[in-house]
Every structure is written in structure tokens, then in C-alpha cells.
């Protein structure tokens, strides 16, 4: 307690009182050298204190270094992912070419099928919906655009009569999955970031009015008003969508015997096998392991909603 009382009651250095007493008695002698030393030390202390304050206000060099490290790593990984994606695309094109050559024997119907199935690139007029995440979005999921939102909008587009849909250049096919991994959104296991451009090829006006009547239109309004994302709908006279490459290889699914008996009706026959394709795709180990939430396929839902292969007729 004496210590606390000492600290509380006598915060002033006793030296000041002593110096004052000495001064009062006139016993104090000041030399010029002493003053000079005092001044020099004071100067040094001033510089030191400013250095200390400046160093404390500057960001931690270690953190900055770690951040730099992470940045370069992220850059490297992105480059790797890009390289792998392009390699994948070339290989897929090769496979597609080989498959096409194999199928050409089966007639020209294969080309139309590939176009409808999304394995080959398409172009045409349509609608582009751009959803840009708000810059002020915090960490809470309530003000972030989520995979579910893209899914609902894509479904709405299918329902409204879209013939081909792509998100940020990733084509949606019968086996596409829109999933969430942490805070990032993946379309077919390829990460997509804001701004999300959902391009749909089809009758733009019909899609615009049709979309407003679906859940997709409602969700766009929610995104615009509640989530704070900016939503932009624009018609485009020409949209280029890439193909998904080779169609997913089917290991378990095969056409039922009745379907094989009528190979001449590919368009109307697509609805049922699509379901099989999807359930097969989620059953393959690679797809399951990588996607955090194997969500409903946009294409699949759209198809069931549109009812009966409406979108497969170009």
C-alpha cells in the first residue's frame, strides 16, 4: 500500500524539488558543458521518441511480408489453375474431336446433340445479367452474393426459355453444379468472382419477361434491394459461349431398352436421361470430393421446370 500511496501522492520526481531547493539556496552551479550535454541528450531523446512513435504507427513488417507471401502464392496458384484450365480445354477439345469423329458414323444428329448438350461452343443473341457484389459488403453472408442466388437466376433463365447459359464464361450443362466452397462460388468446380455475368442465349425479350415471372426474377429483386448488389440486365445481339469440352463420360447410365429402339427422337428423349446423367455425375468420386455442397444442378432444375426438353430445340 505504501507503494501505491507513493505513486498516487508523489507522482512528481523528487529531483525537481531538490533542484528547486538548491537553486533557492544558490548552491547550484551551472556550467556550459553541462548545458550542452543536457541539450544533446534532449535532442537524442526527441529523435528516439519520434522514431519509436513512427515505428509503432507503421504496419508490422512481418505481417506485410506474410501478406506479400500469400499474395504471390495466390498469384502462382491462379496462374497454375489458368494453365491447367487451358490444358484441360485443349485436351477436352481433342477428346471432343475424337468423340465427334466416332459419332459421325452415327449421323449428323450428333452435332445437334452436342450443341444442345453444351459440349460445343455456341453463339447467338440473348440476355446478359450482371450481378456485382457491393463493395461495402461485410463478412456476413447476408450481404454477399451466394451460389444459391446464381443457381436460382440460372434456373429462372432456363425456365424463361434460355437455350444455352453460361456464368462468367463457364458453360452450364446437364451435369453442371453451382456450389459454394467457403466464401467462394464455384461453377463446375471453377471459381467465379463478382461481377457475375450470367449470359443466356435465346429470345432476349421473351427471356426478360419470362424471367420476371420466375423465382429468378424475385431473387434478382432481393439481390438488388436487400443484399445491395447491383443487378444489370442487358440484351446482346451476339453472345459467345464456350463448350464444356467433352461430355461427362457415363459409366453407370445407359439408355433404357425402349429409348434405344427410337433413336430418331433425340430432342424429346433428352428429358429423362438427363436425370440419370446428373445422378451419375454426383456419384463419381472426384466430383463429390471437390465440391463442398453438391447442390442442385441449375440445368436439371430448369429442365424439370420448363418441362420436356423445350430448351434443347435450337
Amino acid at each position: 500500500m505504501t507503494l501505491l500511496r507513493e505513486v498516487m501522492d508523489h507522482p512528481l520526481d523528487p529531483g525537481y524539488a531538490e533542484a528547486a531547493a538548491e537553486k533557492a539556496h544558490g548552491t547550484r552551479r551551472r556550467t556550459w558543458s553541462g548545458r550542452a550535454v543536457t541539450a544533446v541528450i534532449a535532442l537524442a531523446l526527441g529523435i528516439a521518441i519520434v522514431m519509436a512513435v513512427a515505428a509503432l504507427r507503421a504496419p508490422e513488417p512481418k505481417e506485410a511480408k506474410a501478406l506479400d507471401n500469400l499474395r504471390t502464392q495466390a498469384q502462382q496458384r491462379q496462374n497454375q489453375a489458368k494453365a491447367l484450365a487451358s490444358e484441360n480445354a485443349t485436351l477436352a477439345a481433342e477428346v471432343g474431336g475424337l468423340v465427334g469423329r466416332g459419332q459421325s458414323a452415327q449421323g449428323s444428329g450428333a452435332d445437334a446433340l452436342a450443341l444442345a448438350a453444351g459440349t460445343t461452343a455456341v453463339q447467338g443473341p440473348g440476355l446478359v445479367i450482371t450481378i456485382t457484389q457491393s463493395q461495402q459488403a461485410g463478412g456476413t453472408s447476408a450481404d454477399l452474393v451466394q451460389a444459391d442466388d446464381l443457381e436460382v437466376v440460372a434456373n429462372g433463365l432456363w425456365q424463361a426459355g434460355a437455350e444455352a447459359v453460361g456464368i462468367n464464361g463457364v458453360r452450364l450443362t446437364a451435369t453442371s453444379a453451382i456450389s459454394e466452397a467457403g466464401q467462394s462460388i464455384q461453377v463446375d468446380l471453377q471459381p467465379v468472382v463478382s461481377p457475375f455475368r450470367i449470359s443466356a442465349i435465346g429470345d432476349a425479350e421473351a427471356m426478360e419477361t419470362g424471367l420476371a415471372r420466375t423465382d429468378g426474377g424475385t431473387r434478382l429483386a432481393v439481390l438488388r434491394n436487400d443484399v445491395g448488389a447491383s443487378v444489370d440486365e442487358a440484351t446482346s445481339s451476339r453472345i459467345d459461349l464456350p463448350g464444356s469440352g467433352a461430355a461427362a463420360a457415363l459409366y453407370y447410365a445407359s439408355a433404357p431398352p425402349t429409348a434405344t429402339a427410337t433413336p430418331t427422337a433425340p430432342a424429346s428423349g433428352t428429358a429423362k436421361p438427363k436425370h440419370k446423367t446428373k445422378s451419375k455425375a454426383t456419384a463419381t468420386p472426384t466430383r463429390n470430393a471437390a465440391s463442398a455442397t453438391p447442390s442442385r444442378t441449375a440445368a436439371e432444375l430448369g429442365r424439370t421446370g420448363a418441362g420436356g426438353g423445350k430448351e434443347t430445340t435450337p
Binding site: L43, I47, A48, I49, M51, A54
Partner: peptide, 22 residues
């Protein structure tokens, strides 16, 4: 003189931005 020295030191530190050893 000590106060003057301190002020000069603070100003010098602000101008020259010396860095502190880690």
C-alpha cells in the same frame, strides 16, 4: 535548453524518418 533540444529532436525525427532496429 532541454525543452528546445527535445523539440528540435522531435522535428528532426519527423523530417528525416529514421527507422528503428527490429
Amino acid at each position: 535548453i532541454a525543452v528546445i533540444g527535445l523539440v528540435v529532436g522531435v522535428v528532426a525525427g519527423l523530417i528525416f524518418h529514421p527507422s528503428v532496429p527490429a
